[in-house]
């Protein structure tokens, strides 16, 4: 190691391996585990909050339990008079078609 321009504090290597030093390492290990557990908890809570916000902001269909395909939904709306019979393709048109102010 004579190319190293470094020194160490007196007694440094003798201290390593003593019960006190090993205790310090164990405490550091325990602290690291606690930090990791806290970080995991924060990430889990943040992820759950994000999912809740996304679910809240997502548009809902009239029937929130509906899970059928688009064709079935079209038939349902047609039968419920939500889509004018004279304009059956209105279902597929942009939203502003249904606006009261649209031409």
């Amino acid at each position: 190691m004579n190319r190293f321009p470094f020194t160490v504090p007196e007694g440094y290597f003798e201290n390593i391996g003593t019960p006190e030093y090993l205790q310090k390492v164990r405490r550091r290990r325990a602290a690291g585990q606690m930090v990791r557990r806290m970080a995991l908890t924060c990430v889990t809570v943040a992820a759950a909050a994000a999912v809740a916000v996304i679910a809240m902001l997502s548009p809902r269909t009239a029937d929130s339990g509906y899970d059928g395909n688009i064709e079935e939904l079209y038939i349902e709306y047609l039968c419920s008079d939500l889509i004018p019979e004279t304009v059956p393709d209105a279902f597929y048109m942009p939203e502003e078609f249904f606006s009261e102010t649209s031409e």
């Binding site: 190293f4 290597f13 390593i16 090993l22």
Partner: peptide
């Protein structure tokens, strides 16, 4: 414990 006594100094450098 054996590792610490045998290798600490080498690992440090």
């Amino acid at each position: 414990n054996g590792l610490v006594h045998s290798y600490s100094e080498r690992l440090y450098w």
